Computed example of a mutant assay.
Amino acid sequence: MRRARAVWQRVPTPVMDIALVAVAAVDAWLNMWERTGLGVVLAAVGCAALAFRRRSPLVVFLLTLPIALMQDVAVAVLAALFTLAERSRDRRLLAVCVALSAVASSTPWPLAEVDRTMTLVFFIYGLATAAASVLFGQLLQAQRDLARRLTEIEEAREHERTLHAQAVLARERAQLAREMHDVVSHQVSLIAVRAGALQVATKDADAKEAARTIRSLSVTTLDELRTMVTLLRASGGDATELTPQPTLADLRTLVESSGTRAELSGELPPGVGSPAQRALYRTVQEALTNVRKHAPGAEARVELWQDGDDGGVTITNTPPTRPSLSLPGSQQGLVGLRERADILRGTLEAGPTAQGGYRVRLRIPLSAD
């Protein structure tokens, strides 16, 4: 099955279009009830239009409808209807097109005395045939959506695995830095102090020189240890005084690298406290992450604002442009943001918008510390 599909996908699109036009033309010529001049022209136009079905599927379907008047089951109509169903998400439009196809295939041509029983039979037969074509098209569309979503899920999992590995490495480096600072540095400091005391107390010149050398080496070792601790903490990403927390100045970089079409507007005064800046940054970070996960293809707007002594940020996203699958989540992101807002005597509001999108709004005192 997969091998046959792979072979089929390697066929060039123009070759497939030419083959479909040829099959539809042969079908129309062999099964046409009456070959009138008008009927042949309409059939030729409908069959030739199939070459453009990917660009304008609805227009091509309408052009093929006259062929359904001239034969029971028209390949051209079914192919156009399949392409429309494969590319359209409007279920009402597809239902109308199925009905039109069934009516056209059950209407006698040229118009003559109508046999109601046979007309009803042909209508039901045409309805079932057209519905099957639409169902196959919708199935193919759903398969493509699922494959795209699975790819996105795999990319997200790979990203999470990378972040987890980085977090583990960061914890190990931070632990090593603490051990070096709390244990090794402390012991070396004691050696330096004892060597200094020995250098002052001893009367022996050789002992004094040895004590001076030990003290000098200890001080040099302490400097090197401090440099190593600084590097370990910085590369480990641990939140210490050596690695400053993100601020409002980092927001633009965060928005631009979020993987979502987002824009940043508004500004806050320069005197915003550090805890407030961290809360604003983390709120934007979590909201944009949720947009990427749960609203694929949506656009986001990040707006900074000030209201008296309070300020905040509002993140609003449009509805997703692609269907998303229901994925399990920890549901802890917004909970953590609300807890952070409560600590700073602020509020966090989150919920869907009337347009089908989602909005997150944080309000905190700008002087929060």
Rank of each mutant, 00 (worst) to 15 (best):
A6D: 13
V23G: 09
V23S: 15
D27R: 07
D27H: 09
D27I: 11
A28K: 08
W33K: 04
G37V: 10
G39D: 03
R54D: 12
S56V: 10
L69W: 04
A76T: 04
A99P: 05
L100D: 07
A104C: 13
S105H: 05
T119A: 11
F122K: 15
T129R: 14
A130I: 06
L139Y: 10
Q143K: 12
R149A: 04
I153Q: 04
R157K: 14
H159S: 14
H159N: 11
T162G: 05
H164R: 02
Q175D: 07
E179R: 08
V184S: 05
S189N: 11
V193Q: 12
L198C: 12
T202S: 14
K203Y: 07
D204W: 12
D204R: 15
S216G: 15
L225A: 07
R233H: 05
R233P: 04
A234T: 15
P244T: 01
L248M: 10
V255T: 04
E256F: 09
S258L: 09
E263C: 07
G266P: 11
A276G: 12
L280T: 02
K293R: 12
P296D: 02
P296T: 01
G297Q: 02
A298V: 10
Q306C: 10
D307E: 14
G312F: 10
G312H: 04
V313W: 11
I315T: 10
T316E: 06
P319L: 05
R322S: 11
R322M: 09
S330L: 07
G346D: 01
G351W: 03
P365W: 03
A368H: 02
